[in-house]
C-alpha cells in the first residue's frame, strides 16, 4: 500500500515536472531572443545600424545593369555618356528586392510617372543633389545611421546628408507643415517598436529607380530586435494618390560593431557644388 502510494506520488511529481519543462520550453520558443532593455524594460535600440542590401538602387527585384543611366547601344543598352567614365564603379548589382510580392501596386498614371523618373534619373533623383532622403529611403541608403534611445528620447541620426528624425514618444497630432523627413511618433507593440510618420513633401524618392510617393504618404515602420546584431525592419506605405493599396517592404538591419560602430560625416552638400553651381563661377571650368 505504502509502496503504491509512493509510486503514485512519484508519477504525479514527474508529470508536474514535465509540465513545467514543457511550458518553459514553449516560452523559450516564443521568446527565443531577449533584447537588451532600457530602464523601463522596453527593448533598447541604441547603436549604429545599416542594411547589407542594394535596395537603394531599386526596391523591386532587379537584374544587374551597366549603369543607372543608360542609352541605346548597337546591341544592348550602354552607359550614358555622363556616367561612362565610371566603368564598373557605376554598374548596378542585381538585387532580390525588398517589396513584399515583388511589385509596387502603382495606379496606372503613377506607373507612367515612375518610368519617366527612371528615364530622367540623372536630373531628377534627389540623392544626386544631396537632398534629404525621406522615409523609408533613409533606412536603406548605403550609409549607416545611429539610433539614440532612452525612455525619454528616440532620435535617428543618418550619415547621409546629416538627415535627422526626432521621434515623438506620444502622438504629436498632424504635422504643422510638410517636410522632407516627415513627422514621426513611436509606440510599442509588445517588444516591437512601431513608428508612424506622415507630413512628408512629395519630393523624395524611394530609390534610384524612380519609385516615388506623394505628399499624402503615410509610413508605418516596425523595428523588432532579432539578435544582438540584427533588427527585423518592416515598413508599410499608404498613399492614395499613387498606389492602389497599402504595400510593405521588409529587410534586416545589421549592427555595426567594434571599430565600425561609428557614423562618419557625409554632409554631401560640398560634393555637389560644382554640379549645381559650377556654371556660375567667375571662370567656369571646362565641362
Amino acid at each position: 500500500m505504502d509502496e503504491k502510494r509512493s509510486s503514485r506520488r512519484c508519477i504525479k511529481a514527474m508529470s508536474a515536472l514535465l509540465a513545467v519543462c514543457l511550458v518553459s520550453l514553449s516560452a523559450a520558443a516564443a521568446e527565443s531572443y531577449q533584447p537588451p532593455r532600457l530602464a523601463s524594460g522596453k527593448p533598447d535600440f541604441n547603436g549604429v545600424w545599416q542594411v547589407l542590401n542594394n535596395a537603394n538602387y531599386n526596391i523591386e527585384p532587379h537584374g544587374g545593369q551597366a549603369a543607372m543611366a543608360l542609352r541605346e547601344g548597337p546591341v544592348v543598352p550602354v552607359p550614358a555618356k555622363e556616367v561612362l567614365a565610371l566603368g564598373a564603379v557605376g554598374a548596378v548589382p542585381a538585387g532580390l528586392g525588398v517589396v513584399e510580392g515583388g511589385k509596387i501596386p502603382y495606379q496606372p498614371a503613377a506607373l507612367i510617372q515612375r518610368d519617366k523618373n527612371r528615364q530622367n534619373w540623372l536630373t531628377s533623383d534627389p540623392e544626386i543633389k544631396c537632398y534629404l532622403p525621406g522615409i523609408p529611403r533613409a533606412t536603406y541608403m548605403p550609409h549607416p545611421f545611429q539610433i539614440f534611445h532612452n525612455d525619454e528620447a528616440l532620435f535617428f541620426s543618418y550619415q547621409y546628408a546629416n538627415a535627422v528624425r526626432n521621434i515623438y514618444l506620444t502622438d504629436p497630432g498632424p504635422a504643422p507643415i510638410d517636410s522632407w523627413m516627415g513627422l514621426s511618433w513611436a509606440s510599442w507593440d509588445d517588444d516591437t517598436l512601431v513608428i508612424k510618420s506622415s507630413g512628408y513633401n512629395d519630393r523624395t524618392w524611394l530609390d534610384r529607380a524612380g519609385n516615388f510617393h506623394s505628399d499624402v504618404l503615410k509610413v508605418t515602420e516596425r523595428f523588432t530586435r532579432t539578435s544582438d546584431h540584427t533588427i527585423y525592419y518592416e515598413a508599410t506605405l499608404e498613399d492614395e494618390k499613387v498606389y492602389t493599396k497599402p504595400w510593405k517592404i521588409s529587410m534586416p538591419l545589421y549592427k555595426r560593431v567594434g571599430a565600425d560602430d561609428r557614423i562618419q560625416q557625409f554632409n554631401c552638400v560640398e560634393y555637389v557644388e560644382e554640379l549645381m553651381y559650377g556654371h556660375l563661377r567667375k571662370t567656369p571650368l571646362e565641362k
Partner: peptide, 18 residues
C-alpha cells in the same frame, strides 16, 4: 519642439548671389 530646417534643398540664395 524643433522642426525640420532644410537649407540646401531650397537654397535659392547661393545661385542668386553668384
Amino acid at each position: 519642439p524643433i522642426y525640420e530646417y532644410a537649407c540646401h534643398e531650397g537654397n535659392y540664395s547661393l545661385p542668386g548671389i553668384l
